[in-house]
């Protein structure tokens, strides 16, 4: 099992790096999906089969499909790739990379020279979906309700924000709209 952990960890890190540094948005998304699948394998190996399934279904499935849709709606073809190439120069990412590496060195020091002292004996153990469901619907019931409301708010918010402005298809209505907008502009200018 250890070799599976190391293999999927390497795949996850490599694909995440490619996703972050890739110029083509769709390719980056596909790399990110592969990385999420590798993380799902890590979840499974660590003894969380339920969350591994959820990771594949929700993260790699639903959320990434949303990303792919938006990327396809915004796609500007070759020009976008050229622009990304211009943005992603060495001088752009050198200093952030240095700082992130510094943070990584600190992290390594904390993890290996002052390792977590309270790690329990017995190592990793698997937790079956029954236990997760039991905890979710007894102790965390309020949290489930709040997550439901959050998702509801997210759906309504996304609908209202993403709604296109209504177009008028009649000349008369268009003129009326123009009149109204100029009137409101005048009003704001007076206020200023």
């Amino acid at each position: 099992m250890n070799i599976i952990f190391y293999l999927s960890a390497v795949v996850a890190i490599y694909c995440t790096l490619r996703a972050v540094f890739h110029k083509h948005a769709v390719h980056a998304l596909l790399y990110l999906i592969v990385s999420l699948l590798a993380v799902a394998v890590v979840f499974f190996v660590l003894g969380a089969p339920f969350l591994a399934a959820l990771e594949v279904i929700i993260y790699a499935g639903a959320i990434m499909v949303l990303f792919v849709f938006v990327v396809m709606m915004l796609n500007r073809g070759e020009a976008a790739i050229q622009q990304e190439k211009a943005w992603l120069q060495f001088s752009t990412w050198a200093w952030p990379a240095v700082f992130v590496l510094l943070l990584f060195a600190e992290w390594l020091y904390l993890l290996f020279y002052q390792p977590p002292a309270v790690a329990p004996v017995g190592g990793n153990q698997s937790i079956m979906p029954q236990q997760v469901g039991e905890a979710l619907f007894t102790r965390y019931l309020l949290g489930v309700e709040m997550a439901a409301m959050l998702l509801m708010a997210g759906v309504i918010g996304a609908y209202h924000i993403g709604k296109q402005k209504q177009r008028n298809y009649h000349r008369y209505l268009e003129e009326e709209e123009n009149l109204r907008s100029t009137a409101s502009e005048k009003q704001t200018q007076q206020v200023i």
């Binding site: 969380a48 969350l51 959820l54 937790i127 236990q131 997760v132 905890a135 979710l136 949290g143």
Partner: peptide
């Protein structure tokens, strides 16, 4: 959650 054998961590990931 897998080290402490508690389901709470997995619940947090669901959230």
């Amino acid at each position: 959650s897998s080290l402490w054998k508690q389901a709470d961590g997995q619940v947090m990931v669901i959230f």
